[in-house]
């Protein structure tokens, strides 16, 4: 109840993992853990979809729809009819 954060777009394919550890270095929410031969998903629901892991995974084992988790930016984009959500230079969050 009252939890919209029960799913996200993070997908990880352990078969492609070469255990380089980049994802566990860049993740600010400790979603990944280096454990054994491949990285394990420790806490996937903590993922905030920042996209750092996907960008830095050398084998494309991780997929996530990265983006700005900012309601004002999204609502503004919806009002202005823009498809792409970015927090502009004049926005409140940055």
């Amino acid at each position: 109840m009252f939890n919209s954060y029960i799913s996200n777009t993070l997908e990880y394919d352990p078969e492609l993992c070469i255990n380089c550890g980049m994802c566990s270095i860049v993740c600010p929410h400790r979603v990944f853990r280096m454990d054994g031969k491949v990285v394990k998903l420790l806490d996937p629901l903590s993922c905030m979809e920042c996209g750092a892991c996907q960008l830095n995974c050398p084998t494309k084992a991780i997929r996530v729809d990265g983006g700005v988790g900012c309601a004002s930016a999204m609502m503004l984009a919806a009002i202005k009819g823009k498809k792409e959500v970015t927090c502009g230079c004049d926005s409140s969050c940055c």
């Binding site: 954060y5 996200n8 600010p28 929410h29 979809e49 983006g67 700005v68 988790g69 900012c70 409140s92």
Partner: peptide, 10 residues
């Protein structure tokens, strides 16, 4: 937008 943990999906 100011928080450090909310995902786009959420």
């Amino acid at each position: 937008g100011s928080s450090t943990f909310t995902s786009v999906t959420g």
